[in-house]
Design a protein around this nucleic acid. Structure first.
Length: 951
DNA sequence: GCGATCAGCT
DNA sequence: CACAGCTGATCGC
């Protein structure tokens, strides 16, 4: 494609993107110029002081383009989105392989694509650019940029694209030239200590061994292996299985095309002839849904097995989301002759590797490229991510730069290479950094005992350094140091570190990272004595039950190096720090708790909580007027924090009483009892609840009996414990004529359940509703609508049905409209309500089992029928888990016809009826309009709803 | 009428 | 939120 490279073999290829671009568009207009890049441009996609955009093809509009030099790190759509056959905005620089994919698969006009060689510097627009392998998918590269500055030196930037760091990268001499670079733009996909997964080799070994083992057990052509992959990526598994298991791999035509482009064609590893192989590549979600937790699709697999005439089927899902890892075994789900192996195979760096990389590169700054909101300039998330590397970046160099700037008298002297090319954002960041350092300096001067590194040229040596600070200051420093270190570091170690660093925290931190391994081994050798000393160290902590103790504290000292709450060795730490806990209330020095928590937690962590706790939202649906006689039910109302702070002081006692009464669904008559209880537990609501629910003398059943969703009446799950689930069997369409006076909100039974699917002009909201105006709206009204919506295709039809559904609500039970909207949109209350349930799939299932009594086969039927209940395992729960379960049991027992299905889906937060805000709101609006001729005040309701929803 | 973007699904 | 990507509906110029 490029003949330019042949010009001289010895000289570095020099390119000019503008010229290349003009040639590409066949224009002789040499006056091409670009507007300044706006300061709002996502920092993770722009190389400072250049017009180089990385993996960013959609941020310039048709009217304004900022650059002719685009870089694409690899061929995944989330990185090339914005590219299309009509691309014409600039030259795309990428690896050779990626260029082939762009041209052949994406049909990008070839003259806009400029492949660059690997490990071979070229100069683009005056900047040296080097592509090195990223160990991601085929063709994926990292970009190394050397940007000249005015004073004749270079700024160096590493953009990793998507990358899995491996030790061999340390051997790359080009990358070595970037040690101490200015910025690393880092693939932070798995930047959280909870992401622990093995090397790719281990995972490949595992797959190979399973294929070998089962392949031998089932000689001949009886077992089918399926490997889930996507378009480009994870081929290493396939190639290795082929090579080591001596089998070909079957792929479909489309995948084969891609593999041919990637150069796998000649090896005869892959075949499009199904009969040649019993190892088949399948699409991403064929073996099961992967989110929010893995749910195998045994039904589909069985179909495939039978269709293709096999007797056993073994699936592999190579995923970075390690749903669970058992002791050196990967998770396996199986059912009959089907098994699915969840293999933690990742093409992104895990947490340790990320830290390893940054530690190796010692950049002055880390810019995360992956994560929500990451593109925003003020992304809190980005800051959070950045903190994971606080101890590893070269802060000293930052300080030095800054102070040097002062020395020269103009720290702003480092000018842009091109006019206006540098976005303000960078300057802002610089300023921010400088400001931080200033703040730090002021802290230092106040303390008079932290000094800048001696190597700093403007550093004035401070003889006080080695002076031993007062007891109080020592404590403070140890705590401060703790903020920067992993949690496993003991107090003794910290003391050692800090005193041998002349009480300089920064130095102590960097010392720590130089000896991290030794220190870690030290404590693993003396684990018991460690925890003992740790327990002693944390004496400042009041004793609270482990459940209540916040194992993690937020950190102060934001102005120094942001705290690093990393934990690189112990395999899994939770890193959720609620930083909005006010410093005054923050628990100090809870290292000991953390340590303990980690130990007791680690098992849980690795086996359970990777299955994301489904924080579904049930409970009170916007109880505007909490007076409502206490019928408003919440299953449980938790603060947003995962852990209740000990002795939660944020609530007054009275508030707690009210909250408690709400939780137990009690009324004023129970107030005295509640006061008593809360006094006994010193205001600890959780403990009070435990007592409440474990006390047989109190009749909770009364409270549990009527579980309703809204404050007053609205969608009612009326309960009667004697209507077991089996009721579901006969409640399909034809059984609705059986009235049951024990149920509240009982549907009027002479109404066809499919009436909402009538066209809006035929639908009569009142006559066609399944209840009357003096009754609360039954949930079955929603459930039926959901079912119809789910069985239909097309948004228009869904909108019309939802509209009809709302019209009935508006006409008969306007107060139920809002709850209904929440239910439709898969929420239980507005976002700001902060209601969480913490109900996981297993909880729902076990509740289901209970509701069904001993009849397990029924549950299996329902499981097959609905496919929503992935977990059959029963959890032994804590008090609160039991309580939630009880509530769910009661809900389920009260279910009628379709209610069950959608209740379960709601509980596991996966309604999947295809009705999102965008569908629900127009339907509601339409319903309001259609009803407004009848009753104008409803309009106000709708407005109010919209306001509330928009919060 | 076109491409860009979004919702939904796999 | 989210390891990737396709499709069809809607938005917006």
């Amino acid at each position: 494609m490029s003949s330019q490279g042949t010009a001289t073999a010895t000289k570095t290829l020099a390119l000019d993107s503008t010229q290349l671009y003009l040639t590409a568009i066949d224009s002789s207009d040499s006056t091409l110029s670009f507007p300044p890049i706006p300061s709002t441009f996502p920092p993770s996609k722009l190389i400072p002081n250049t017009r180089f955009l990385v993996d960013s093809f959609r941020h310039s509009t048709t009217t304004t383009t900022f650059s002719a030099a685009y870089f694409l790190s690899h061929f995944h759509s989330d990185h090339y989105s914005g590219l299309s056959p009509s691309w014409s905005k600039g030259i795309i620089f990428c690896s050779h392989l990626t260029s082939l994919l762009l041209i052949q698969t994406l049909k990008i006009p070839p003259h806009f694509v400029f492949p660059l060689p690997l490990n071979d510097p070229v100069v683009v627009d005056g900047c040296e650019v080097i592509l090195i392998d990223a160990n991601h998918c085929p063709g994926a590269v990292q970009f190394l940029f050397k940007v000249p500055t005015k004073n004749g030196s270079f700024e160096r930037y590493v953009h990793t694209g998507d990358c899995r760091y491996c030790n061999s990268m340390k051997l790359n001499s080009y990358l070595n030239d970037f040690v101490g670079c200015d910025t690393i733009f880092l693939d932070t996909t798995y930047c959280n200590p909870k992401f622990v997964f093995p090397s790719q080799e281990e995972s490949v070994d595992y797959v190979v061994s399973v294929v070998d083992r089962i392949g031998k057990e089932f000689k001949e052509k009886k077992v089918l292996f399926l490997v889930a992959t996507y378009v480009v990526g994870k081929e290493k598994i396939l190639v290795e299985v082929a090579r080591r298991c001596k089998r070909k791999i079957f792929v479909d035509g489309r995948k084969m095309e891609i593999l041919n482009v990637l150069g796998y064609g000649g090896d005869k590893v892959f075949t499009v002839d199904e009969s040649e192989s019993n190892v088949h590549v399948v699409g991403w979600n064929v073996l099961g849904e992967t989110w929010p937790y893995f749910r195998p699709n045994f039904v589909r697999m069985k179909e495939i097995m039978e269709e293709k005439g096999y007797e056993k089927i073994v699936g592999f899902v190579p995923t970075g989301w390690t749903y669970e890892i058992k002791r050196n075994k990967f998770a396996v789900r199986s059912k009959g002759s089907i098994e699915i192996h969840l293999v933690p195979y990742s093409e992104h760096s895990n947490y340790d590797e990320l830290r390893e990389y940054v530690k190796f590169l010692k950049p002055k700054r880390v810019i995360p490229t992956v994560g929500m909101d990451i593109e925003k300039l003020d992304s809190k998330h980005a800051d959070k991510l950045r903190r994971h590397f606080a101890g590893l970046v070269d802060e000293m160099a930052n300080k030095k730069d800054f102070l040097m700037g002062f020395h020269r008298g103009n720290y702003g002297s480092v000018e842009k290479v091109e006019m206006d090319a540098s976005p303000n954002s960078n300057e802002n960041k610089d300023m921010e950094r400088k400001k931080n350092i200033l703040e730090m300096k002021s802290v230092e001067s106040k303390n008079a005992d932290i000094t800048l590194n001696d190597s700093s040229p403007v550093q004035k040596p401070d003889s006080q350094d080695s002076a031993i600070p007062s007891e109080e200051e020592r404590e403070r420093k140890i705590e401060e140091l703790g903020d920067f270190l992993p949690r496993w570091v003991t107090r003794d170690q910290k003391l050692n570190l800090i005193s041998s660093s002349r009480w300089n925290v920064v130095e102590a931190v960097s010392n720590f990272y130089e000896h991290e391994n030794e220190l870690y081994e030290q404590i693993s050798a003396f684990r018991t004595s460690d925890s003992a000393s740790a327990a002693q160290a944390g004496s400042s902590n009041n004793s609270v039950s482990p459940l209540n103790s916040g194992p993690f504290r937020s950190s102060s000292h934001e102005s120094l190096i942001s705290h690093s709450s990393q934990a690189s060795k112990p395999s899994s730490f939770k890193l959720s720090v609620r930083s909005n806990i006010s410093p005054g209330k923050r628990k100090k020095n809870t290292e000991n708790k953390s340590n303990k928590k980690v130990k007791s937690n680690s098992k849980l962590e690795s086996s359970g909580s990777k299955q994301p706790m489904i924080t579904s939202f049930f409970g009170k649906v916007l109880v505007d007027d909490s007076k409502g006689g206490g019928t408003g039910l919440k299953i449980e109302e938790c603060p947003k924090e995962e852990i209740t702070l000990p002795g939660d002081l944020t609530k007054s006692f009275t508030e707690k009483i009210d909250q408690f009464i709400q939780i137990i669904n009690g009324n004023e008559s129970s107030r005295n009892y509640v006061v008593n209880l809360l006094e006994k537990t010193q205001g600890d609501i959780n403990r009070a609840l435990d007592i409440f629910y474990s006390n047989p003398e109190v009749n909770h059943d009364e409270n549990m009996e009527n579980i309703v969703v809204s404050s007053k009446s609205a969608p009612v799950w009326s309960c009667s414990n004697d209507c077991p689930v089996s009721k579901n069997e006969h409640v399909l369409e034809e059984s609705r004529s059986i009235p049951d006076s024990s149920l509240q909100g009982q549907p009027v039974e002479n109404v066809d359940v499919t009436l909402v699917s009538l066209p809006p002009d035929k639908y009569k909201p009142i006559e066609h509703a399944c209840w009357r105006s003096d009754q609360p709206a039954p949930y079955v009204h929603l459930a039926r609508t959901f079912d119809l919506v789910g069985s239909q295709r097309g948004k228009i039809k869904a909108t019309s049905m939802l509209c009809n559904m709302f019209r009935s609500l508006l006409a008969l039970s306007p107060e139920d409209v809002l709850p209904a909207v929440y239910l439709c949109t898969n929420k239980i209350a507005a976002d700001h309500e902060n209601i969480e349930l913490n109900i996981g799939g297993s909880l729902v299932t076990s509740a289901l089992e209970e509701a069904c009594g001993t009849n397990r086969s029924k549950i299996r039927d329902m499981y097959n029928d609905m496919g929503d209940l992935a977990f059959i395992s029963v959890q032994t729960g804590s008090g609160s888990t039991m309580r939630k379960k009880n509530l769910i049991v009661n809900l389920i027992r009260s279910c009628r016809e379709k209610e069950m299905k959608f209740l379960v889906r709601t509980l596991v937060r996966n309604l999947r009826i295809g009705a999102m805000m965008k569908t629900v709101l127009p339907a509601l609006a339409q319903a309001v309009v259609m009803n407004s001729s009848r009753d104008l005040c409803h309009e106000g309701t709708a407005d109010c709803l919209k306001e509330k929803l928009q919060v």
